[in-house]
């Protein structure tokens, strides 16, 4: 993210150091050590991350023609977006995935902010204990979280009477809330780190000028927190847009009832591996994955141009 500053440290130490570096004999020999340092990371990363991503995009332009894999151009995308059955499922998944994210955005951020602000209050005792306890759910596996809540929300156990996970009107929001329950610790910790880094004299000066605690929060702390809100949101967006584990654990690959909890991750899985009577297809799976990539990319670009550039970052 901050890679644009790539060479700065070398420039900042002045021309003398740069000149000294240029005169080192090691510079003139073949830089074996450079290759040794860089090769393992670059090789593993390229082979298992970059190549599969690019190859998936390539595969999305292939299809089975008379049982033989052949180049079909954008046919798969056209089918995915216009075919009666497929496009209904696809848009259903996209819309529900956005809803899944919206719940995170509107619930996770305020709760995280509230908890972080309270944790940072200067006279608070037991801060470390609160922080540790509230963060525990974040360390759990999504599978565990899914089942814990499935048990607690089960009408069989009788703690909650309404089958929140069984009704198509409430299932997705309930799942999103389960996910918020798990991950709220992350915004809390990040917001907390920002709040405690705000210099005390800044707050003190405002207090001397007669600002109330409320004003100090909204006028001083909140603007300083906005860049972090944006960062947390975009990371959550990316994570939500390729979420799968929770829905699969609680609702299975069919994302029931009646696809009401289907999101792109589960659609991708079903398209790739097949389910019930529909046969799986790796090229169609790659097409769904490529569409997921585009949706994620759109979100990231929206963040960079719509938020990151407008929100002012202050140097403290």
């Amino acid at each position: 993210m901050s890679q644009d500053t790539g060479l700065e440290p070398h420039e900042s130490d002045g021309s003398a150091a740069a000149a000294r570096r240029d005169h080192r004999p090691a510079r003139r020999r073949f830089p074996t050590h450079l290759i040794v340092f860089l090769l393992p990371a670059v090789a593993v990363y390229t082979m298992f991350m970059v190549y599969p991503l690019l190859d998936s995009m390539r595969l999305s332009m292939f299809g089975d023609v008379d049982g033989v894999r052949a180049f079909v151009g954008l046919d798969n995308f056209v089918r995915l977006l216009t075919d009666d059955l497929l496009s209904a499922l696809f848009w259903n998944a996209v819309v529900q995935n956005l809803l899944f994210f919206a719940v995170h955005f509107f619930v996770q951020n305020p709760i995280g902010l509230l908890l972080a602000t309270l944790l940072a209050s200067p006279t608070l005792r037991g801060r470390a204990t609160y922080r540790t306890m509230i963060f525990i759910p974040t360390t759990l596996s999504v599978v565990i979280v899914g089942f814990i809540w499935q048990l607690i929300l089960s009408p069989l156990w009788g703690i909650v009477e309404t089958p929140l996970l069984g009704r198509s009107s409430t299932a997705l929001v309930t799942l999103a809330m389960m996910s918020v329950w798990q991950y709220v610790g992350i915004p809390m910790i990040l917001f907390y780190a920002v709040i405690i880094s705000i210099p005390e004299d800044l707050i003190e000066a405002a207090r001397v000028d007669g600002a109330s605690g409320w004003n100090i929060f909204w006028r001083i702390k909140f603007p300083l927190l906005l860049p972090t809100v944006g960062m947390v949101s975009v990371v959550t967006y990316v994570a939500n847009m390729n979420a799968f584990d929770l829905i699969y654990t609680v609702k299975g690959a069919l994302a029931g009832p009646d696809f009401s909890t289907d999101i792109m991750g589960t659609l991708f899985f079903r398209t790739f591996f097949g389910f019930q009577l529909q046969r799986g297809s790796s090229t169609m799976g790659a097409t769904v994955a490529t569409m997921m990539f585009l949706v994620i990319l759109a979100g990231i670009l929206l963040y960079f141009f719509g938020w990151h550039r407008r929100v002012q970052t202050y140097e403290l």
């Binding site: 993210m1 990363y45 082979m47 298992f48 991350m49 970059v50 190549y51 599969p52 991503l53 190859d55 998936s56 595969l59 990316v238 994570a239 847009m241 390729n242 799968f244 991750g265 991708f268 790739f272 790796s282 799976g285 790659a286 994955a289 490529t290 997921m292 990539f293 994620i296 990231i300």
Partner: peptide, 17 residues
């Protein structure tokens, strides 16, 4: 780049690989 792009999107090719 890989920080922002989930590796899961390449699953089809990872499996083949």
């Amino acid at each position: 780049i890989g920080i922002m792009i989930p590796i899961r999107l390449g699953t089809v090719s990872i499996l083949q690989l």
